[in-house]
Design a binder for these strands. Structure first.
Length: 338
DNA sequence: TAGGCCATCTGGTCCT
DNA sequence: AGGACCAGATGGCCTA
């Protein structure tokens, strides 16, 4: 047995937790199937090479000649396959590790209720985009719209999870259920964005209950009428995006480079404003901007880039402040690193 | 039980 | 040739 084969089998044996081996992985059936496969394996040790001659009635095949699968070839094939499987496993584990890292960075992290892969990616996309737009526009987002932006396109359970992480009740950022909350609704007939994805969890359409916060009709926030281009994120940065092109489904890369744009930030906290006393999620932005809205970068200040965004009071879904730490760490990392 | 999510296997393709 | 990447298939687990 070769060293590599030993390693391979060790790794397979150790990593094989609960996954059953594919039925074709062992047994004689594989050898049968291997007889039929187009093997690109070139003979290197003088094994016989035969042309497939099954049946005169069959038309002659074109392409490379088939080679009979000898025991040695079968063995080599198996080894190769096992190595490829192990590599693939490792690759997927690496991918999952990266995804787990992303879960911790995204503004909703719970060990007990993990975001699914797809939801993690969606939330991360929303988050990146939202942060980028804050920087780009220099305008303070409306908190409700911010949360909506984060949850845009997410399934209802994930929306509830995000809300739970932020200690918000999804109902509270339901525009239609909370008319007193200043969420800008899309103008009638507003344009939809081209290429905007329209994911809806089956649970949404099925009207599944979603503990712990009851139900939330996604159409209240995210529904987009066909042929009516409109991004719910527009109110988030109202007035900024409407005239500047696509507001959502942003380019693959955020419009801002973290390193390039945060490098010159000074670290100075300006008293912020609480958006809603009913929220324990208080975002302290910079000096109040024009129109009474707090401005992220203190639009009225002498140094518009010197204010610090603070996010206080975030409690993790697990009942501890893990998320707070994560958010603070994350934001600090963004604003303090360069 | 159906559906969602996940891990793994597998074969194909592309690249070095 | 071998590795990385990808997508389809498959089966297990969990939950509503």
């Amino acid at each position: 047995m070769t060293r590599s084969l030993q390693d391979e089998q060790e790794s397979v044996g150790s990593e094989e937790q609960q996954e059953p081996q594919s039925p074709s992985e062992e047994g004689e059936e594989e050898e049968d199937s291997l007889h039929n496969m187009e093997d690109e394996d070139e003979e290197d040790d003088g094994e016989e090479e035969e042309e497939e001659e099954d049946g005169e009635n069959k038309p002659k095949r074109r392409g490379p000649k088939k080679k009979k699968m000898t025991k040695a070839r079968v063995q080599r094939f198996k080894v190769r396959r096992m190595k490829a499987n192990a590599r693939e496993r490792n690759r997927m584990h690496g991918l999952n590790d990266a995804l787990e890292s992303l879960r911790k960075i995204v503004p909703c992290y719970s060990k007990t209720q993990k975001l699914s892969k797809i939801e993690t990616l969606r939330l991360a996309k929303n988050y990146i985009w939202a942060l980028s737009e804050i920087l780009r526009s220099g305008k303070a987002p409306d908190l409700m719209s911010f949360v909506q932006a984060l949850c845009k396109g997410l399934s209802q359970p994930t929306t509830n999870l995000v809300a739970g992480c932020l200690q918000l009740n999804p109902r509270t950022f339901l525009p239609e259920q909370t008319p007193d909350i200043p969420v800008h609704l899309p103008p009638a007939g507003a344009a939809n964005y081209p290429g905007h994805y329209s994911y809806q969890s089956p649970g949404l359409t099925a009207g599944l209950p979603s503990p712990p916060y009851g139900t939330m009709e996604p159409s209240h926030i995210f529904h987009q009428v066909k042929g009516q281009p409109y991004s719910p994120l527009e109110p988030f940065f109202d007035g900024v995006l409407v005239s500047e092109g696509p507001a959502f489904d942003p380019p693959l890369s955020p419009p801002l480079s973290i390193n390039g744009n945060f490098a010159s930030f000074k670290h100075e906290t300006v008293a912020g404003a609480d958006y809603d006393k009913s929220f324990s999620f208080n975002v302290h932005y910079g000096a109040t901007g024009a129109g009474g809205h707090p401005a992220l970068y203190g639009s009225g200040g002498s140094n518009p880039r010197c204010n610090e965004l603070q996010v206080d009071g975030l409690m993790g879904f697990d009942g501890h402040s893990h998320h707070e730490r994560m958010m603070n760490a994350q934001l600090n990392a963004i604003f303090h690193e360069s």
